[in-house]
Design a binder for these strands. Sequence first.
DNA 1: GGGATCGTGCGGCGCCCGCCGAAACATTCG
DNA 2: CGAATGTTTCGGCGGGCGCCGCACGATCCC
Lengths: 238, 238
Amino acid sequence: MTVTSRVPLADLAALLADGTRARFCLALLDGRAWTAGELARHAGVAASTASEHLSLLVRGGILAEERQGRHRYVRLAGPRVAQLIEDLAAHADLAVPAPPPPTLRAASSAKAMAAARTCYDHLAGRLGVAVTDALTARGLLRQDTGFALSDDGLAWFTADLGVRLAPRGRRPMAKACLDWTERRHHLAGVAGAVLCATLLERGWVTRIGTGRALRVTPVGAHALEDLLGIGGEAAAGS
Amino acid sequence: MTVTSRVPLADLAALLADGTRARFCLALLDGRAWTAGELARHAGVAASTASEHLSLLVRGGILAEERQGRHRYVRLAGPRVAQLIEDLAAHADLAVPAPPPPTLRAASSAKAMAAARTCYDHLAGRLGVAVTDALTARGLLRQDTGFALSDDGLAWFTADLGVRLAPRGRRPMAKACLDWTERRHHLAGVAGAVLCATLLERGWVTRIGTGRALRVTPVGAHALEDLLGIGGEAAAGS
DNA sequence: GGGATCGTGCGGCGCCCGCCGAAACATTCG
DNA sequence: CGAATGTTTCGGCGGGCGCCGCACGATCCC
């Protein structure tokens, strides 16, 4: 009988408390849109099962959907949920030290991911942390008293990188995001997204295959060395 | 058969996906330690049920326990989990606009909470946001390019407030925490915790009853006006 | 139009898990 | 020591939910 009024927190958590739905969300952390079928295969469940899960996640505000023809494209609803899931995953993985990957293929993939990857819409992995460190060392990013760009940092985006860094809604300009391989913070927020988009646009980094993993191109390595003094391992192509 | 390797994210979310466990965590957001019995009564379940829930939460790293005699005291495991739960709750409450409180007592309590309360170990509610705004307006806290104290801000804590602001482990000095009544950010992190602790120690604010709600004392109102130019409604006692 | 592909609604099955009460254990107090 | 109180363990019950297969509608391609 205990009707026990609903607890919003529990309802939200319940959406992520299922292995299959969690796998969906983790896959979608690459920031791109997937079709229902792709996700079903990725998680190893029947299409009908995936369909129901997606409806729940959309209704719960975790995912946004976009229908095109016979496809149902689905992506994370926004940077906020992406951050939330990333935080949750980071916390969960801290408790469970990653077991050694079973297959060679998985090991190689894990290695590439650890080197450089996207985290929703910004850089992560050793590359992401290296960029964050370089910005900090040069006084462009302040981490000792919080996490914010300095005035020099603002100027760097405009003058050195050559991109406009405009406020976007209520999203913070700079934000710390916990890197789950490096166990340190890397740059997220508007600045992180703009930086990542710029690197991709200019071909300084490219995606490896269809996943989240990135590779620094030779041109990119030069540019990163030039702009931030990043060289060697962190900028190495895979 | 589908053994489907575990998904840490889902395991963590599952801990919070139950109404009773969620109620426990939300109650513990006051930052203090509760006994198992108190939580059981608070959530309206049998002691045996609460006991099992607590064991799960402790094993999952959400809660830390401390046994004293026949009592089992339990509190949130640390600022990190507190922040996680707060984020999750904030996101959940955004989707579900709070229904009007059913009872007069609840309404009065909600009013006090909205005015001033603790959020784990820092200030929240209109008071928390007012303090954050005042710090920002005076150039002590930078919010336009992220969220960090300025050098003036560091000096303010030492010279004006008269407290040492030392780094504590890996916890960030300043951090934005989403206020679920004001729907804006307030100051968290080491600085937020130190500030809140100082205000409580000096009797500038006091707890109302046993909950999270706070009241600004007359002495406190003067001090806040003095230090930050905060007056009127935000500093009003209740 | 015909055949392949993609997504969805519906039963039905099975299991997990949250709940309680009763009994046992631990601690404090008189 | 005995009573009172707080907590834990154990069965057992019931409901919720994640899974599939199948049938069907929609869409795209040839």
